[in-house]
């Protein structure tokens, strides 16, 4: 499946893009993260949470094909 992946804050400094489409065979969020880690070798050093369809998910969550976002630590306020 093709998944839209969005990047924010300091993650953009690693990916140099705010959004892209990534092809994965499916499976779990961890499978997508594996693809991203092999594409961006600095990503493993970064702290981030993952949202699928705007809800925080874990690595064990199944990919649905809906939008994924990599969210570094929040700093609102």
């Amino acid at each position: 499946m093709y998944i839209t992946v969005k990047y924010f804050g300091q993650i953009v400094e690693v990916t140099n893009t705010q959004e892209e489409t990534i092809e994965v065979a499916g499976g779990h969020v961890s499978d997508l993260v594996e693809v991203l880690n092999s594409k961006y070798d600095q990503l493993e050093n970064k702290d981030f949470q993952i949202a699928q369809n705007q809800e925080l998910v874990s690595l064990e969550t199944e990919l649905t094909g809906l939008e994924i976002a990599l969210l570094p630590p929040f700093a609102g306020g």
Binding site: F8, G9, Q10, F74, A75, G76, G77
Partner: peptide, 10 residues
């Protein structure tokens, strides 16, 4: 807000 809202600050 501080805890749950995805806002990022440089």
């Amino acid at each position: 807000i501080k805890d749950e809202v995805p806002v990022f600050g440089k």
